[in-house]
Nucleic acid binder design. Structure first.
Lengths: 203, 203
DNA sequence: CAGTCGATGTTGTCACCGTCAACATTTTTC
DNA sequence: GAAAAATGTTGACGGTGACAACATCGACTG
């Protein structure tokens, strides 16, 4: 082979190199462009310069690809939550920071977020979901830190998850009037206002 | 025609009678059985004992059918909210009642609720969405009643919407541990506990 | 270093789907 | 009672998910 040609027009000598990752990236692009129902394995294959059946060497079926997207999303969300709470000691501030990071993640990664919480995406045969449970544990721990030692922190954790989750969903769906949440700055202000108004009762 | 035969096996003399409603019912059934991506116009037609292209006399396309489902959902949700708040005078109790009714509606009508908040379902050409804005106004009014006259009630309304919305979504997605929300009674208790813990700061 | 074998990519195929056009039948309207 | 509008049918087309059979590449093994 004369020279390593990385231009997009060159044929990748039969094997692709990292088709799995290319398919995931193409899927995110496609969903961003055409919506979830506009995703097709064949179009992903086309964008990866590969034949229409090649994806089946990396994903058992379309659902498996979506599951991989969801998993990537949960990993990044968990990382964002941990990062947001790092260095924050006050339990209430920790929950606030988590909530703000949660909504921000959703706004910044609308495709991943929607896929993460799209039902009908089941874990393929051998896979285990685990990641979202981890995120929930993080909430339970933070909620436990600001309740009486004897109280059950799970209800507080559910509340602490429901509010940012609902806000994120409504913003993503455009249900919140545009005047309220059209720019990122407005979204940020909205989040902080709501969380501030809501943090009181958990103590 | 000898006698009015309403049995399912009899052919409805070319015209169906109320195909539009039959298609909507079939769609709800189908989604309940196979999920949103398992919905197909052809299968709906089959279940209505009608040819595969007949639905196009009542819906411009698949999206229009889904939009009709969503609209039915918004109407019923609004009715449930109004009914729940009827006779409740205290503004906080009104918001509580709305929230509980909201989550209950979602749990009782998972198919409608999910379709209502599935993005990518746009209003067909001549249609207007309006219904969800009405639901939002209801929240704003209730929130306004318990704030200082000068304060902007919209943030409170968004919060009052986000919490039940997020809770409903998480329960529907099975994200809340089964031990927390497996039976309707548990869901009801969870809702009331959360709303009770959260109602304080709005005053 | 040759040969084998698993991983990866390709071609071909099938059933199903959304959508349209052309045609048939029924109901309504004048 | 005929014309017109509404409703249902048949047939076709391109796109899709999924599978089977085949081709090629890369890595290990003797």
């Amino acid at each position: 082979m004369p020279a390593g040609d990385t231009s997009s027009s060159a044929k990748r000598s039969y094997h692709h190199g990292d088709l799995r990752a290319a398919l995931i990236d193409a899927a995110i692009e496609l969903i961003a462009e055409r919506g979830l129902h506009g995703l097709s394995l064949r179009e992903c294959a086309r964008r990866a310069d590969v034949s229409h059946a090649a994806p089946y060497r990396h994903f058992a079926d379309k659902n498996a690809l979506l599951f991989a997207l969801a998993r990537r999303g949960f990993e990044r969300l968990a990382a964002a939550g941990v990062a947001a709470m790092a260095g924050v000691d006050d339990p209430r501030d920790r929950l606030d920071a988590y909530g703000v990071a949660y909504v921000r993640f959703a706004v910044d990664n609308p495709v991943l977020f929607r896929v993460m919480f799209t039902a009908e995406i089941a874990a393929p045969e051998g896979e285990v979901a685990g990641d979202e449970a981890g995120a929930f544990d993080l909430l339970v721990d933070s909620a436990a830190a600001l309740l009486d030692p004897g109280a059950d922190p799970r209800d507080a954790a559910v509340a602490a998850w429901s509010l940012p989750h609902g806000l994120a969903m409504l913003v993503l769906d455009g249900r919140i009037p545009a005047a309220e949440a059209s720019t990122p700055a407005q979204v940020e202000r909205l989040m902080r206002t709501i969380f501030a108004a809501w943090r009181g009762p958990l103590a």
